[in-house]
């Protein structure tokens, strides 16, 4: 299924300043799209527009060419899943009960989860290798565990498209790697993954496509290597960076290192 945004524009007030101007991109199965931009450039706003939490003032988001606002809620949320930022807002139920909430679009309004729903919730925990957390309370999880639990909840809906809001923010190195590895392996199995990130290096390492938002609401979209360049980053973030390759353990890992703040 192809997720695309066509000339999306958004402003918080009618006729007010446009936060997003003519944003366009598309993502096919297996694509990992990284959305980059400085604080306040509208990354989270863009995600919320894509998912229909905010209404585009013009343009729209489409699934296989069909406008998403015309797709019934239940059908839409069986295809697309949303992973919010892990801010410790989780409820004090067990992890398994929490992950089951992700089955909402499959469970009837007056029904409760069936054995099938439990099996899917259990499977998505196993897929992310966090089955051992099932009976733990969400309030007792570490930041990394909570983020993985949120991804598991999204997977429980058996989506084809996964949209993640800064999934690796506030995590240590190891947990960042765990989350990013999960994204990569899901994409390898054909899932479309779209994620916001503060780290250009993560975009280079994990994404095949990148969308760079600049502070004036404009955007660039293309292959990650073509978009994440020293010049584009300088323009979008006001920071001079050095982009290079690190070699260790027989692997080559692209890296982006900030050098200095540019004067405008």
């Amino acid at each position: 299924m192809i997720l695309s945004v066509d000339n999306g524009c958004f402003s918080y007030k009618r006729g007010g300043k446009e936060v997003l101007k003519n944003v366009s991109f598309s993502a096919a199965p297996g694509d990992v799209v990284a959305i980059l931009g400085a604080n306040g450039a509208g990354k989270t706003t863009l995600l919320r527009c894509i998912l229909g939490f905010l209404k585009w003032s013009s343009g729209g988001s489409f699934l296989d060419g069909k406008n998403m606002k015309e797709i019934p809620h239940r059908a839409l949320w069986r295809t697309v899943a949303y992973v919010p930022q892990a801010k410790g807002t989780a409820s004090a139920t067990t992890v398994l009960e929490f992950v089951l909430l992700g089955r909402g679009s499959h469970i009837g309004t007056f029904a409760k989860p069936s054995a099938t729903d439990l099996a899917y919730a259990d499977a998505s925990l196993s897929r992310l290798r966090i089955g051992h957390l099932a009976q733990k309370r969400c309030t007792e999880l570490s930041g990394g565990e909570l983020q993985m639990t949120l991804i598991a909840r999204a997977l429980a809906a058996q989506p084809q498209i996964l949209v993640l809001d800064e999934p690796e923010s506030n995590l240590d190195f190891k947990n960042q790697l765990l989350v990013l590895e999960a994204v990569s392996s899901l994409a390898a199995e054909g899932m479309t993954c779209v994620f916001n990130t503060h780290f250009p290096a993560h975009a280079l390492q994990r994404a095949n496509k990148a969308l760079l938002l600049s502070a004036d609401g404009g955007s660039r979209f293309g292959g990650a290597d073509a978009i994440i360049t020293e010049e584009n980053i300088r323009n979008a973030f006001g920071v001079q960076v050095a982009i290079g390759q690190m070699q260790a353990e027989g692997k080559t890992v692209p890296d982006v290192v900030p050098v200095e703040i540019c004067e405008f």
């Binding site: 919320r48 998912l51 939490f53 809620h73 239940r74 839409l76 949320w77 069986r78 899943a81 949303y82 919010p84 807002t89 409820s91 139920t93 009960e97 909430l101 992700g102 909402g104 679009s105 469970i107 309004t109 007056f110 029904a111 409760k112 989860p113 999204a154 809906a157």
Partner: peptide
């Protein structure tokens, strides 16, 4: 009582609750 499982979803943030396909 018959909506009780959905009361769990209601405790989530607005975006998360909507992302479960709930009206």
């Amino acid at each position: 009582y018959i909506l009780r499982w959905r009361l769990n979803i209601l405790t989530l943030s607005e975006d998360e609750a909507r992302a479960t396909g709930m009206n």
